[in-house]
């Protein structure tokens, strides 16, 4: 793993969505889906991006794929600036950056056979049909499925098999980066394990870089080298899996980890620190800690200014006013 080569580099990214307060009304409200977000992902590592619904993690993934346009900030993917890239450059970035979405049934065309789904990206980029078919068969073997499935339609396959097809389709372009948006949350537990193991095997074999977007802490802790925690559009903590799980610094991360049910009935009655309220309740002012209204440690300054992002130990970042006191 080459530690210092950032393959994805995000700087001060902002994305706002403007909503009407009521139907046909002129009053608008603004949602800061991604707010002043900076992060690096190094080549060959698996980074987990975790957050609850509405935290902006999917918006971020869509911006990285060029499906949504950012308002401000810069993204460099493998040395190319994405925000002002032309059509040709964008196409080139997309061939290096593949994606697997959450619901495998929804992202395979129900009227196309597995073969045409997998060969389509190749054909679009000008690979001869015959060559494309050979590569499709190969990709299917890589995801441990029999070649006979090439002529099946998605509805004839189980959820786990559909997700394997989606992975094969992503792999066929030989990408360097894979963005996985909730890759296993639609699957049963026994099948989830098969798909996760497959993803890890492929990552090692082709030294891929993974950005896994999920809300499932038990999955992410298991596969990632580093974890980024997102809350209401902001990166609140970033560090190695070990740092985040065992030495989390931000109150949000701590309570998030605490909320995950422990798989051991003997520890069931340990009194847990819990959040009041729900994600989405944020202070009126933009320059305030996003968590202030739910945080049990909130102080006056949390409502008045944005806490600074600090490197507390090498490679372990968090933004919280409590940490400035400690230093």
């Amino acid at each position: 793993m080459s530690e210092h080569n950032a393959i994805i580099s995000i700087r001060n990214l902002n994305k706002q969505f403007v909503l009407s307060k009521r139907l046909f009304s002129r009053k608008k409200s603004v949602v800061n889906a991604v707010h002043d977000f900076s992060m690096d992902v190094y080549e060959g590592e698996v980074v987990g991006l975790i957050g609850e619904s509405g935290s902006g993690k999917t918006t971020l993934a869509r911006i990285l794929l060029g499906l949504t346009e950012a308002d401000e900030g810069s993204i460099r993917i493998d040395g190319t600036e994405l925000t002002n890239a032309g059509r040709k450059q964008l196409r080139e970035i997309r061939s290096r950056c593949a994606v697997v979405f959450q619901d495998p049934a929804a992202n395979l065309n129900p009227r196309q056979t597995v073969e045409s789904s997998i060969t389509r990206p190749l054909v679009i980029t000008g690979v001869p049909r015959r060559e494309a078919k050979r590569k499709a068969a190969e990709a299917l073997r890589e995801v441990q499925m029999d070649e006979s499935y090439l002529f099946s339609y998605p509805h004839q396959l189980s959820g786990g098999q559909q997700q394997r097809i989606a992975i094969a389709r992503a792999l066929v372009m030989r990408p360097k980066i894979m963005i996985l948006d909730e890759p296993t949350s639609a699957l049963d537990i026994s099948v989830q394990a098969q798909v996760l193991n497959l993803l890890l095997d492929l990552q090692e074999e082709y030294s891929l870089t993974y950005l896994i977007v999920t809300h499932d802490l038990s999955v992410i802790r298991y596969v990632s080298d580093r974890i980024a925690v997102m809350y209401m559009g902001r990166l609140v903590e970033y560090g190695t899996t070990e740092d985040i799980i065992n030495n989390s610094l931000h109150p949000y991360t701590k309570i998030l980890i605490n909320s995950v049910p422990v798989l051991d009935p003997e520890h069931r009655n340990n009194e847990k620190a819990m959040f009041s309220g729900e994600p989405g309740e944020t202070p009126e002012k933009l320059a305030a800690c996003r968590l202030a209204q739910r945080c049990p440690y909130a102080m006056q300054q949390c409502f008045e200014g944005t806490p600074p992002m600090q490197e507390v130990t090498p490679g372990h970042f968090a933004e919280c006013f409590l940490l400035s006191d400690r230093r």
Binding site: V191, Q192, A193
Partner: peptide, 24 residues
């Protein structure tokens, strides 16, 4: 047994989970 061993547990970080082959 197989189902319980497929759970990604907190205290293990073996980087591989036991899976049950096949489908229901």
């Amino acid at each position: 047994r197989a189902l319980l061993s497929t759970l990604p547990r907190y205290h293990k970080s073996l980087r591989r989970i036991a899976a049950i082959d096949g489908n229901v």
